[in-house]
Nucleic acid binder design. Structure first.
Length: 359
DNA sequence: CCCATTTGACCATC
DNA sequence: GATGGTCAAATGGG
């Protein structure tokens, strides 16, 4: 099955996240701008602002964090991972998935496990809307396990990239429903995708195979990315967690989830513009050049297409640190237009130095 | 028949 | 020893 392997562009998570955030912000800005001009939906406009701030905040925090700590944790976002090799290695002999970790690497003697790129995201989706469309981060995942976690009310689901076998992609993610707010799911990603997946697929588009895992665009979900560190040793959870709100068919035994029985856990919602969406005047086409540059072409973020009913969440996207984006002075028009400019070329060299997306 | 999910067991780490 | 993470056989759906 070769599902979606379309063109050959692979997205590196960190960058993708940033793009996602910026794209989302851009989309919201557009809407806001529209609202301002038309003097309509004042309420909506108010709701949009915090959303926009959130996206910027996420992007900035991620970037800042990496810079300040360059060399440390952040840099560990590398895939230096460990984990296993393509498990294919039949453990028949000696099933020890982790054992390889020691053998292969020459990494410095870190007593702890090897560092694996990790980041967590929190995504919340309105129940109503969320139910309809699973989150999708543009990647296809396959569930390989579920486990009850001590202290957690709900079990944790383990997913890995479906291309693991075919492309050796080691990307994985863990999905756990929030104890406090059952409508939120924390998604922890590990390792970057090294596989080539459909570039234009966007989160809701059935990028995969026959669309088994995903369906239509997911609209309402909130994505909160806490791109923190990739260091496991110290902060077990520091990583990216995505909170996914009640998903349609998440099969958590303990909870009666009225929807479909099998929830292929959605991947994170990283909107990758789809071809269709491109047709809408605004779509962003991201591409990465060999020299670490990001080229963004006009467009808009997909996920918001249509009704993007982003739940005006209650706080999921609050940034407590109160960093001020000073967006108040922002000239929205300018900003949005900048995004729309025909080939916004962003230089992400700095990213390169801070995040090691080595493959 | 093929593929994804479920689930119990195994293994490594803490 | 307890807990988390992964594997793989079993099961179910398309």
């Amino acid at each position: 099955m070769e599902e979606k392997k379309t063109t050959g562009m692979s997205y590196l998570d960190p960058k993708l996240f940033i793009l996602n955030e910026l794209a989302q912000a851009k989309e919201l800005l557009r809407r806001l701008e529209t609202n301002l001009h038309t003097a309509t939906s004042t309420n909506e406009s108010k709701l949009l602002i915090p959303q926009i701030l959130s996206y910027f905040e996420n992007s900035l925090s991620m970037l800042n964090g990496s810079k300040s700590e360059s060399g440390n944790d952040q840099s560990q976002i590398t895939a230096s991972e460990t984990d296993s090799t393509p498990t294919d290695s039949p453990r028949s002999v000696n099933r020890s998935p982790r054992s390889d970790s020691e053998s292969d690497l020459m990494e410095p003697p870190s007593k702890k496990r090897k560092t694996v790129a990790r980041w967590t995201e929190q995504v919340r989706v309105c129940e109503e809307t969320g139910l309809e469309g699973p989150l999708d981060d543009g990647y296809s995942w396959r569930k390989y396990g579920q486990k009850d976690i001590l202290g957690a009310a709900y079990p944790r689901g383990y997913y890995r990239c479906t291309h693991r076998a075919t492309q050796g992609c080691l990307a994985r993610k863990q999905v756990q429903r929030s104890d406090e707010d059952s409508s939120i799911f924390n998604v922890t990603y590990r390792d970057r995708h090294t596989c080539v997946q459909a570039p234009h697929l966007l989160p809701g588009q059935s990028q995969n195979k026959d669309g088994q895992e995903h369906q239509k665009p997911t609209k309402s979900q909130e994505t909160i990315i806490n791109f923190q560190t990739g260091c496991l040793g110290e902060t077990p959870d520091s990583g990216a967690t995505k909170v996914v709100p009640r998903s349609p068919s998440f099969s958590f035994p303990s909870i009666p989830v009225p929807r479909s029985p099998s929830f292929s856990f959605p991947s994170a919602s990283i909107p990758i513009p789809s071809d269709e969406q491109k047709e809408n005047n605004d779509n962003i086409f991201y591409s990465m050049t060999p020299d670490n540059h990001f080229v963004a072409s006009p467009f808009s973020s997909p996920s918001t297409s249509g009704s993007n009913s982003v739940c005006s969440n209650n706080g999921v996207n609050n940034f407590e640190d109160g960093q001020d984006l000073q967006t108040s002075d922002y000239d929205l028009s300018e900003f949005t237009s900048a995004f729309d400019s025909p080939d916004l070329y962003l230089d992400f060299d700095f990213l390169d130095s801070n995040f090691r997306f080595d493959m």
